[in-house]
Computed example of a mutant assay.
Amino acid sequence: MSTTEEIRIQKSDSRSNVWKELIKVAKPDSKFHFNFAEFIADFEGSSNATKQFKTHEWYKNSKLLFITPDNCLEELRYEALKDGKTILITTYGIYRGFWLLEPSKIPKERYEYASTLDGLEKVARHITLQNMIDEKLCVDVMITGTGAINYQGIRLGKGHGFFDSEWAMLYTIKAINKNTPTVAFVHDCQVLDERMTPEVFDTVCDLIVTNSTMFQVDSIAKPTCGIIWDVLDKHMFDTIPPLQELKALNLPVPE
């Protein structure tokens, strides 16, 4: 068995163990119920996580946040809009690409609606990778939910690799760099003691925010490999337009 296969088996086992505890504090999704393989759940105390992160200098000093479309980050998206911050976000599964939520272009009474997955596309602006390059978009902080994370900042998502792909795409077009901070929102029960070895494309997190605490981890280098086309799942390429666009742009990956 290869090292890569061993890592993936370890991740799968860890996810299953966390999900047994997560279901006790998770909020069901309207579509996926408690199927944690299909969505990142909101959880009891996520409002506390949002309040804590809003006190962090990374949040206070930011102008443009990338926030994944995870359930546990809906309140953060709402708060960010109220605070005048622009949000870069993808649709579920990145199927319809990237969108920009610009608070100056959204009526304030629609901020809460705009922060939801059902509402964002009705008020946000669709933005391509080429648009981001032309507009010199610069993301200050990358924020994600995740299935589990350890004290090294190594994430265990749903197993699809969406956040890793989002990082790789934004890194390749220079909207972020290897020093761009990454933040994970999780419940306490999703934080693991076990040590793991990240794969070359794993986007580790610098800050972990939970329902009860917030702490930075010892830094691990972020991926600088971009999309590894030879190992990219064909279904992801076929269903994610920005990946197809990036392939066509044929850009060199920054060093």
Rank of each mutant, 00 (worst) to 15 (best):
K27Y: 06
D29H: 05
A49Q: 06
I40G: 12
I143L: 03
E38Q: 15
K158S: 04
L232V: 05
E121T: 15
A221K: 10
I240R: 00
T203L: 06
S16K: 15
S104C: 14
H235R: 12
R77W: 02
I133N: 10
Y171V: 10
V141A: 04
L246T: 07
E21I: 01
L207S: 06
V25Y: 02
N17D: 15
F163R: 00
W19H: 14
Q190A: 09
L88I: 12
K85Q: 03
N61Q: 09
G157W: 02
V204Y: 04
S14A: 15
T239C: 02
F163E: 01
S46V: 14
K158C: 06
G97H: 00
P252A: 08
Q216N: 09
F185A: 08
D230Q: 14
S30L: 10
C138D: 15
V191M: 00
K178M: 12
N35Q: 08
A37S: 15
E121L: 07
L100V: 13
V139G: 08
D206V: 04
E245T: 01
E6G: 13
S2N: 13
L22T: 13
D70A: 05
E255D: 14
Q152A: 02
Q244I: 04
G226C: 11
P241F: 00
S219A: 11
L88P: 04
K11T: 12
T91L: 09
I227D: 10
L207E: 05
H56N: 12
N35W: 04
F201P: 13
K108M: 13
I154W: 00
D233M: 07
I106R: 05
D188H: 06
L156F: 04
D29I: 01
F53R: 10
D230F: 03
V141I: 12
I94Q: 04
A175T: 08
D83P: 12
I228C: 11
P103F: 06
G84S: 06
P242R: 00
S212N: 13
V18S: 05
K136M: 08
F98G: 02
E121D: 11
L64Q: 07
F39R: 04
C189P: 10
T172A: 10
C225N: 15
L81P: 02
L88H: 03
L207P: 06
R195E: 03
T144C: 06
G159D: 02
K108D: 14
T4G: 14
P28K: 04
Q152G: 02
I133M: 10
